[in-house]
């Protein structure tokens, strides 16, 4: 028997349609695209409510998409406009605020729908196993950034030192953290879906 969640379907469908309309009327806009994606995800979760773990998997899926779209858009701008530091900083603050709003909205929706309680031993086991993946990626990324900094010190090539300015290095480090977080979220989703035996 297929179990559907009408409230999630209604909220997701409305959000997707409203953002699709604004997207079509006003053209490209990260906010509308974001709303369209999240609306579709919520609608899909409501449609296949018996297939997806609404308490754990839905917020993770939304976080994954949110981080990819919001920070993908931010990094796309930053790496294409390395000289525009002021606009980059504005977009950084905007991206953070947007992500916080999305996270709060989805967690509130899920909490209102299903009071699953505190994380139990399985949630903690999955968090531990997924964190190891994220930690590995973060260490590798930081070593790469450190490596290019050291290279700039030893190989006194002007282009290396001029290209890897403080702004770019700061954003590269931030990118490492974001990618590590994405890997952690993806690993958690995978463990929730495929099980967490022997990890």
């Amino acid at each position: 028997m297929v179990v559907r969640n009408d409230k999630l379907r209604w909220i997701g469908g409305s959000l997707a349609l409203a953002n699709l309309a604004m997207f079509l009327i006003w053209g490209w806009g990260t906010l509308f695209f974001l709303g369209l994606v999240f609306g579709s995800v919520l609608f899909a979760a409501g449609w296949w409510a018996d297939e997806i773990d609404l308490t754990n998997e839905l917020p993770l899926l939304v976080s994954l998409l949110g981080v990819v779209i919001i920070f993908g858009s931010y990094f796309f701008f930053v790496f294409a406009n390395l000289e525009d530091v002021t606009e980059g900083f504005k977009r950084f603050v905007g991206a953070l605020i947007l992500l916080v709003i999305v996270e709060i909205t989805v967690h509130s929706l899920v909490a209102a729908e299903d009071s699953g309680g505190n994380p139990d031993e399985r949630d903690r086991a999955i968090q531990r196993a997924a964190s190891r993946w994220g930690y590995g990626v973060m260490v590798a990324g930081i070593w790469l950034v450190v490596g290019q900094l050291v290279l700039g010190m030893f190989v006194e090539q002007a282009w290396i030192n001029s290209y890897f300015g403080a702004y770019l290095v700061a954003n590269l480090l931030f990118l490492v953290f974001v990618v590590a977080e994405l890997v952690t979220i993806a690993a958690r989703l995978l463990y929730y879906r495929r099980g967490v035996i022997g990890v």
């Binding site: 773990d53 308490t55 754990n56 699953g116 309680g117 139990d120 031993e121 399985r122 949630d123 086991a125 495929r194 099980g195 967490v196 035996i197 022997g198």
Partner: peptide, 19 residues
Amino acid sequence: VGVTRQTIIAIEKNKYSPS
């Protein structure tokens, strides 16, 4: 037993070995 319903489902489906 003090766990979530999702954990019971995972144990039943052999997707989690409980403590």
